[in-house]
Each structure stands twice: as C-alpha cells, then as structure tokens.
Nucleic acid binder design. Structure first.
Lengths: 142, 142
DNA sequence: GCTTAATTGCAACAAATTTGCAATCTTGCA
DNA sequence: TGCAAGATTGCAAATTTGTTGCAATTAAGC
C-alpha cells in the first residue's frame, strides 16, 4: 500500500486523538487491498483471526466515527469500504444475477442534481449514496 | 386501508405462490399505516406481540423477496417500508441532527441520469435507491 | 529506555436473526 | 359446506452479530 495513504491514515487517527497501532493498520490495509466492499465477517476472516472480534468491532466503529470507513448497504447486510478520503467518491451498481458489485465514479451532473433536490426539500446535503440494482452485461443472454 | 391496495397485495402473494393470511395482512397494513419506515423492532411492537418474532422475520424476508417491502439503510440499522408497487417511488433524506427522515419523490431528471450512468457501466438498471444525509432547515441555526 | 494513557484480549453478556418440528390454519375441490 | 393436502405459525433452541468490564499489553512523547 502507498506510503502517503498510510500517512494520511495515521494523521487522520492522530487528529481525532487515536494512536496508530499494528491492529488498526492491518484492518485499514485489508480494506484497502479488497477489490470490493467486505462484510464484517469477510474482513474478520481475511485478517485470519489475528486478533479478537471485539477489537475489530471497536476499530470499525471508531473508523466510521472519524470517517475512515463507510457502510455500503447490500440487501440484508452491509459491507464496509474506505471512505472518499482514501478512495475517490463513488457509488455502486449490483448485478442481481451474479452479485458482482460494480463501482461507479461520481458524476458532476449527479452531484449537482442531488444538491438541487435536497435544497428543494429544505435540507442541505452533506453526503449521499446511490445504489443501483440491475443486470450486468455478462449476465444478459445473447 | 384501501380495498384495491389490499387486492393488489393479495394477488402479488398469490402470483408468487403464497397464501394471504391474517398475519401477513396485519404486517402489510402496519407498514402501510406508518408515516415513515419502521425498524423490525418498531414493527414488532406496533403489532403488539400478536405473534411470534420468528414469524415476523419469515414474513419480512418473503415480502422482500417478492417485492412487497424494501429496506432503507439508516446508518447502522435499516428500516422497512412498502415498495414502489404500493407507495410511489421515492428516496430519502436523513437529517443528521434530529434523525428525521424526509421522503423525496422521484425526479425524472434523476431517473434518466441514473439510467445513463448505469448504461455507461454496462449494466441495465432495474431499481435504485438514493440516500441523502444533511441538515434540515429546522436544525439550522438562525 | 521509561512513564502514562491508550489499546487489546478475554470472557461473559445482550440483541438480532434463523431453524426444525409439531400444531394450526388456508385453499381448492368435492 | 366439509375435507384433504399443503402452507403457515408458534415454540424452543441454536446461531450470528455486536457490546462491555477489566486486567494485561502496547504506543507515544519525553
């Protein structure tokens, strides 16, 4: 993983009053290495039982509070991924046939439209998520 | 609740091979009467312990499968509401200060933009959700 | 290197969700 | 309307998911 990203991670923690520990770095790197969002369970087993479940929960809760990770709702469950600070702001499309998650980069038109919609409802938008369900090209019969 | 909505509910179940039971009607009506999405817990206690929790979970899982209810992610948890088949298609804005959920009716511009974005990623969109977080006008200091 | 405060592991707990099975309803049909 | 077959529910127990207190360990700053 990129040195500068790790430094940003570390300074984010520090600014919020937390230490940079081996455990936290491991969780962060695991999320950074994943090609798509992970469930708690996946994250835990990817880390190969290196530490206690309660520690992982505590770390994720804190990472979320300080804006290092965010939850991606996927039907029943949710998955975890790094926030826009570490990965560019994006959305997701999920293929209903094969379950693949396709990242969708942010679109300026979408962003401004969302702000306009929010304003119309007297709410000033701070953040947003868009999830699209559909069928990917690979799953569409010829 | 409207007769015709109940008939639609019943035929939706039938088409999927399920019976229309007292219990299922009660759950459906409870969701229909709610002014905003409900948590499992709220739904259960609104129904006033008329039946077992496991039954409620089974019903909700099935309702979701056949497209009667959908989950609204709200941070950690999720809430439940009827789908667009029974309530007009809409999105949500959540105030980060007071937690109020503001329904946002669908916007044709948004819809077409989303379809365009999905196409660009080789996925043909079937459904989508947009969640906006912000601060509502009542929570903005004067 | 040392001190102090933060972090982790452990073990127990609490909440949320699932499951098997027997008892009870619904439906379709006589 | 009454019955048989299959679907649905209640119950009790298991599983999964997330939380907590406290003692042991570790990281940060000097």
């Amino acid at each position: 993983m990129d040195e500068s990203v790790l430094r940003l991670f570390s300074s984010t923690l520090k600014k919020a009053g937390y230490n940079t520990t081996k455990t936290r770095v491991a969780v962060f790197q695991c999320l950074g290495a994943a090609s798509e969002p992970l469930t708690m369970h996946e994250l835990y087993s990817d880390l190969n039982d290196t530490f206690d479940r309660s520690t992982l929960y505590r770390i994720i809760r804190m990472f979320e509070k300080v804006g290092i990770v965010q939850r991606v709702p996927t039907g029943w469950k949710y998955k975890l991924e790094l926030t826009d600070v570490f990965v560019s702001h994006h959305h997701h499309a999920i293929c209903l046939k094969c379950g693949k998650i396709i990242p969708i980069e942010e679109n300026p038109d979408l962003e401004s439209l969302i702000n306009k919609i929010a304003d119309k409802h007297n709410i000033s938008a701070i953040n947003h998520q868009l999830e699209i369900q559909g069928v990917c090209v690979g799953c569409q019969r010829p």
